[in-house]
Design a protein around this nucleic acid. Sequence first.
DNA 1: TTGTAAGCGTTATCAC
DNA 2: GTGATAACGCTTACAA
Lengths: 318, 318
Amino acid sequence: VRTVSNVVNDFAHVAPATRTRVQQALDELGYRPNLAARQLRTGRTGLVALVVPEIASPYFSELAAYLVDEAEDHGLTLLVDQTRGDPARELRLLSGERAQHVDGVIVSPWGVDPTDPVVPSRMPVVLLGERAGGGAADHISIDNVAAAADATEHLLGLGRTRVAVIGHQPHLRNGTAAQRLAGYRLARERVGADVAAERVEPVQSLHREDGARAMARLLDAPASADAVFCFTDELALGALRTCGDRGVRVPDDIAIVGFDDIEDGRYATPSLSTVSPDKAEIARAAMAALAGRLSGTGGPPREVTVEHRLLVRESSAG
Amino acid sequence: VRTVSNVVNDFAHVAPATRTRVQQALDELGYRPNLAARQLRTGRTGLVALVVPEIASPYFSELAAYLVDEAEDHGLTLLVDQTRGDPARELRLLSGERAQHVDGVIVSPWGVDPTDPVVPSRMPVVLLGERAGGGAADHISIDNVAAAADATEHLLGLGRTRVAVIGHQPHLRNGTAAQRLAGYRLARERVGADVAAERVEPVQSLHREDGARAMARLLDAPASADAVFCFTDELALGALRTCGDRGVRVPDDIAIVGFDDIEDGRYATPSLSTVSPDKAEIARAAMAALAGRLSGTGGPPREVTVEHRLLVRESSAG
DNA sequence: TTGTAAGCGTTATCAC
DNA sequence: GTGATAACGCTTACAA
């Protein structure tokens, strides 16, 4: 039994002759190791989870597509789960019975901070997006402040004077919106814009519908905006739709920039200018970090900042 | 040990007093059953897989979102995987090592017919979309022929005489495109349209890009179409973009209808008319069928046809 | 280099 | 109604 196990797991200390003999029998019998027994013994499943607020959100599903392939490259299988922004559900996925199925988790947090000591989870965690608390876990993200500043500066550089933002989420612990707001303010500060004149539209969630409604509020306001930076492409697509409905020309009357570079934006009319995070690289770095932890690599929490670039398309073209 | 197991699994034949005493100890110790050991004994994992060609495709990610919730209602966990249209990968997911992790699978087939006896898989399979071969498995689908006929009739009813289709995939075994083509032909036949005058644009895959290119070919052709039925919304959104680029007005010059009712279509400008399959119901029926098989319900393969309806929006409004 | 045997945490069979 | 005890299929310390 020992020798067979050695052959199956490709260990050393097996005589070449024995190895071929065993291998032959393995093939002949169509032997497949029982994963449950193996897990019972080793405690490892070979599964890792991706936990996101919404699978149906294009940004996350595009990211998931990359991660599935990355997982396979590391000999792992990716399991995708969604929390729908429900903190209880988020907690359950991280420390409930569900957690037993997976060796580690890549999580884009919403309400819960998975590194919070309150979360009773003993498996490796990789954080995507902005970190909520001070806990220590590997963290992959772009520089949201700089990226938001890039977008805002681009709009200001077009000569627009009334640049608004859509997408602040003051009710969430997840700090991504806060970071992007900070970037917006930073860019305005740099050109000496009047702080009191900033215009920030909060949203409940990040669907197209929220963007559409926020844009409607913006257009109804007395001194309407001449440019809008939306914190996600989905919000921007909703905003674009409202402009179309109201006969507001984009980019002539209002220039719009989104964030995420989802495929829909490339084919929208007008095509959507956006901040494009390097999703392939985010997936690569996240899975590399997780796989590293799983193979017992210690060391302090890794902090990876991935590149982004501003893609200027029709919705904000000169 | 036996009694504790009885309590944990909520079985009968436990004295009330013993039950509370055991339960108390369980709580006190924070006992959690080890799922690997349970699986080793029972052979069940509690995981089911959804296998789709592309996670990043909005139709599938929206469906996945429904299925995650449905799975939870049945005490199951959904694992999402993609094949990227690679038959080898499709086969591997259905019968490779990966298959051991899951109790059953819901599959939207691409190249491989999972009910083909060639596929050495002994787990319950639920098929989505059109079935490829003659194998026997539970099958959930809408009536693609009728749905495509509805869409085509709608366009013909607008008085359009040169109705084309985009999206045929003659190279695939998966018969969905073939069904929709049949529906298109059926509707034309009903109004006595000239068979030779049909215009069918094939595509390699179903991305926006394919739709954009197909529409370009259509516009370049001598007698251009005045209406297009696209086999998916993604194709339609690509087609819409090409029309915008060329100054072709939708629906005035060309009316467009898509298929799937993805969220992008609702917010596109013009908003996309589409055939809307009842995704929630597809998810419900699929998971119910799978859960039924898992709990040992026998019987012949179930054949479920889910409702669809035509949503007329701006891209084909009168 | 190979074989033996213990043990992972369940569930299920069988007496009591 | 409850308690021993075998078995699921693997990995691994230890022996040979």
